[in-house]
Nucleic acid binder design. Structure first.
Length: 901
RNA sequence: GCGAGUGUGGCGGAAUUGGCAGACGCGCUGGAUUUAGGAUCCAGUGCCCGCAAGGGCGUGCAGGUUCGAUUCCUGUCACUCGCACCA
């Protein structure tokens, strides 16, 4: 019999819309209320920025993985929270607005509609009733509210407390009202108290060098600069000081490192975060720069007064991780921006110093990194006194020392630091060895190469012979006792620059007080929570001012100004928040998206949080994940959430590259290369189930892998084979294949069924979807040729397949005689006993080389197996005339004869 | 430079308390069916020698441990990602 065109076939174009409709009509995946006592599963995708170019094939990779976990979870009887939304503030919509005079909201919501259509076309089991965009007023109202929490919080680094998670910690974010006010501040009056409080808040204003990008018309966070250019667009960035909003993320640096330990994240992402935070321990040490004659009296005074919090203007304070090399400090360096530059510069050196400092200030970050290893610097003409040996050391200025790290000044030990070595060689500064390799006999005072490892002290007076680690601890303690230094910790992490000068972002709920002349006094007021949201003003032009003056400063006066009840004139803050703000807490809002009274009901929070599985691209390994963890910890400290970490398990999907060329080389997909695959086209040609299945079959989820249209065809063929295994391809209408019968499973069939259930189940648990799919292919290869295909086996496969290819699975489930969706059918179980074979094949080796395979009854004892092996003709001929030295038998796995002669 | 990761057929990949290397898919070869193409089905497919039986080689490379190594150890090379004058 031949197929004809009108006979039913695997018709995804009919099946897929049908079931998408069904799920929508029946609200199959909506979760209304939390059922106490039932296991919960909160699975989250990194929500997309709804760009104008639509969904990319990289999106469905992670989304399919989470969808499989969710659908599987429902079949396992869990209550599943699986939401989707939009990270919708951001530059592209605003750039488009500038070009076309269209309000960014219009573009944004249009793009969202397109993204939603594309995601629904792929059959993801989201609870769409929870959808929101970060640009919704109902949402950013609470983003502003959280900002007010940050504004209302100071970090008490010494507070010891036990959180609702039962863990003891030191350091806590506390309400600003609980901040102790020093007596002298109190005495200076209310305004002084307010300014003091403002200086301690987690959200504070700060005049600091910023990264200004004139092309984008905004300042950018350090994290948004790549190679001295803007991460977005690659535009040049200049640095100059500007008053900006900052978030005190550095207060949480230690907790952001420590609390990574218990998370189920890949070590490499944890490492990237640890690296980014960059904690180092060492010591701060004071070098005396006053009149040399006063050195001894200064030391005596210090040993009584102790190490001061502020260094004072007769000392140069340095930070070092190697206090054990103090005796080898042959010069010092201060950053060109250091406040001591002027004071330490002698008249003879003034001209050279001025020139150098000016040149350094003109260098952009790009220049500084480009010239990386080429050291430059200038001598100030002054000397400091080394506190441990009283020696005079020259003080230099060089831009390899950064003002933003440590104290902006270093002691240089050229013998044991590569940068100092280079500098000393270039400027002919003495180099003195103070650390030697252990057991090394000849220690030259002037070494021929730099030695940066640990060893034992030499040329270090009474400390000679002390091992590095011991010496570090010892000298730090002694410096502390004599008031000359103390142990110190430093981080690479900087406070987070939180303001932008663009329009399309959340306005700050902040007012600045104005004096009679309309100038800002520096004092601030906040909008009360019931005045939120502070809605973006309607505007017609979106072009940046071209200066660091924020866009919103051109907003209507009615939005910009008001008079407080006490008569004080107020001006609104005109910066907006960066795009990160909205994505810092969306996972919380998904649990309670419609709540009008609260950002998240505490009971709901305890039910659904934390996120059990979070899947997204590795490009967010530091920024988004670090920021979100920081906000979460602040909310935790303030009692708004009950867990200290938001995301229990994190998985980063690997990037999907374009199709490989004839040389087998695959490149990143990009418009300019013309190798972008559009999901719409794939769905049109092969269907959503094939796209989903293919993306999971390509290889391990976390791995980078190239696209292959032939591969899509491969999984499409598999689905068509499953279809033909269960349906009758020769009938005039869709109906069951006559081979599918109510029949008992044969022993062999039962074995295949149970083996497949076991493998697919375990693979899903491991997120090893590619191997799960190959197991189902094996099942199909086994059953397709059979003339009797028991219905129960077909039902089992249908359920196993349903998380991966839900549309075809629902359709087959219906054909197999079921009225309901299979979304909540119990997941099949397996019986280990039914997987075992009666007779097993055992490989036989002679001297580790495979010679034969023998069949023995399962559970045979070693003697039986050995005997059977010797009976094998091939083995026997290999053993002939040899002496058997040893027989290795691994029950059920292998036999190895070790022979001699 | 520092940190992390990855190297397996023509291609994507599978196999880890050390025990049959190459599951599954793609591609390729041959065959069946077909007016033809497509689709489908069957058989084969790591490399080398050989008509065959059979033999040799083989998980980036070089060593080591072991009866036995893709897996463990040492060294080395290549590629990818992240950070990059952080004292």
């Amino acid at each position: 019999m031949r197929r004809t065109a009108d006979m039913p076939r695997y018709d995804f174009q009919r099946i897929e819309p049908k079931w998408q409709d069904y799920w929508k009509q029946n609200e199959t995946f909506k979760v209304d209320s939390f059922e106490a006592g039932r296991e919960k599963l909160y699975v989250l995708d990194m929500f997309p920025y709804p760009s104008g170019s639509g969904l990319h094939v990289g999106h469905p990779e992670g989304y399919t993985a989470t969808d499989i976990v969710c659908r599987y979870g429902r079949n396992r009887g869990k209550q599943v929270l699986h939401p989707m939304g939009w990270d919708a503030f951001g530059l592209p919509a605003e750039e488009y607005a500038i070009k076309t005079q269209t309000h960014p909201a219009v573009t944004t919501y249009k793009n969202i509609d397109e993204f939603r259509r594309q995601l629904q076309m792929l059959g993801f089991s989201y609870d769409w009733s929870r959808e929101f965009a970060t640009t919704d007023e109902d949402y950013y109202r609470w983003t502003q509210w959280i900002f007010l929490q940050l504004f209302d919080t100071w970090y008490d680094a010494d507070c010891e407390w036990t959180g609702p998670d039962g863990r003891q910690r030191t350091g806590k974010g506390r309400p600003i009202a609980e901040l102790p006010i020093p007596d002298d501040v109190q005495a200076a009056g209310d305004d002084a108290v307010r300014r003091y409080q403002d200086s301690k808040r987690l959200a504070y204003q700060h005049e600091a060098p910023v990264n200004w990008c004139s092309a984008l018309g905004t300042v950018l966070a350090n994290e948004e600069i790549v190679d001295g250019k803007s991460e977005r667009g690659g535009h040049p960035v200049e640095r100059f000081p500007l008053r900006q909003w900052m978030l005190r993320i550095t207060s949480y640096a230690d907790r952001l490192i420590n609390e990574l330990d218990d998370l189920n994240w890949s070590e490499s992402i944890k490492d990237m975060q640890r690296n980014w935070i960059g904690r180092s321990t060492g010591a701060e040490v004071d070098f005396f720069v006053g009149d040399a004659a006063d050195f001894e009296s200064w030391k005596t005074w210090r040993s009584e007064a102790g190490f001061s919090e502020e260094p004072g203007d007769d000392v140069l304070r340095v930070y070092t991780t190697r206090p054990d090399t103090l005796y080898g400090a042959t010069y010092m360096v201060i950053a060109p921006e250091h406040s001591f530059v002027e004071k330490l510069t002698t008249p003879e050196q003034k001209e050279a110093v001025d020139a150098y400092v000016k040149q350094a200030s003109l260098k952009s970050d790009l220049d500084r990194t480009d010239l990386a290893k080429d050291k430059s610097g200038v001598f100030t003409g002054s000397y400091a006194i080394n506190p441990v040996n009283g020696e005079k050391v020259p003080v230099w200025i060089a831009d390899y020392v950064l003002i933003s790290y440590g104290t902006g000044a270093i002691m240089a030990v050229p013998a044991h630091d590569e940068r100092d070595w280079e500098f000393a060689v270039k400027f002919s500064i003495p180099i003195v060895t103070v650390v030697a390799r252990k057991d090394s006999e000849d220690v030259t005072r002037e070494p021929s190469s730099v030695f940066t490892e640990k060893g034992v002290a030499v040329n270090s007076g009474e400390y000679d012979g002390t091992p590095t680690d011991e010496f570090k601890a010892l000298i730090t303690a002694r410096l502390h006792n004599s008031g000359l230094g103390k142990q110190a910790v430093n981080f690479k992490l900087r406070d987070w620059l939180f303001s932008r000068q663009r329009y399309w972002g959340e306005p700050f709920p902040i007012w600045h007080e104005l004096d009679a002349d309309g100038n800002e006094t520096g004092l601030m007021r906040v909008d009360s929570p019931d005045e939120l949201p502070v809605v973006l003003p309607e505007m017609e032009k979106f072009k940046p001012t071209g200066t660091p003056e924020p866009m919103l400063s051109t907003a209507p006066e009615s939005w910009l100004y008001k008079t407080a009840e006490d008569g004080t004139k107020l001006k609104r803050e005109t910066n907006t928040m960066p795009q990160w703000a909205g994505s810092c807490w969306y996972y919380l809002r998904f649990a309670d998206p419609k709540n009008a009274d609260c950002f998240l009901d505490p009971e709901v929070e305890k039910s659904w949080l934390p996120v059990d599985l979070y899947v997204g691209g590795a490009e967010h390994a530091v920024l988004h994940l670090l920021y979100a963890r920081f906000w979460h910890k602040v909310l935790f400290d303030r009692g708004h959430v009950s867990t200290c970490e938001p995301f229990q398990k994190l998985v980063n999907q690997g990037m999907i590259l374009g199709e490989a060329d004839e040389n087998g080389k695959a490149e990143k997909m990009s418009k300019s290369r013309g190798n972008v695959i559009n999901p719409d086209d794939v769905v049109k040609d092969y269907g959503a189930d094939s796209l989903r299945l293919y993306e999971m079959f390509m290889g391990p989820l976390e791995q980078v892998k190239p696209w292959s249209m032939k591969g899509v065809e491969g999984v499409y063929r598999f689905l068509a084979r499953v279809w033909r295994m269960i349906t009758d391809e020769f009938a005039d209408e869709v109906r069951l294949n006559p081979a599918v019968q109510e029949a008992e499973l044969s022993e062999e069939q039962e074995r295949v069924v149970h083996k497949t259930i076991k493998a697919v189940t375990e693979d899903i648990e491991k997120l090893s979807f590619n191997t799960a799919i190959s197991r189902m292919m094996e099942f199909t290869n086994e059953f397709s040729p059979q003339e009797v295909r028991p219905k129960s086996a077909m039902e089992t496969l249908t359920i196993l397949l349903s998380p991966f290819a839900p549309h075809i699975a629902e359709e087959l489930w219906q054909l197999l005689g079921h009225d309901n969706t299979l979304a909540f059918e119990p997941w099949p179980t397996f019986d280990e006993a039914k997987i075992a074979e009666a007779e097993i094949e055992v490989p036989v080796q002679v001297n580790g080389k495979l010679k034969a395979r023998i069949k023995v009854p399962a559970g045979s004892d070693n003697a039986t197996i050995e005997e059977a092996a010797k009976q094998n003709s091939s083995v026997a001929s290999n053993l002939e005339g040899k002496m058997i030295v040893k027989v290795v038998i691994v029950p059920g796995r292998l036999v190895n004869f070790v022979v001699k002669g």
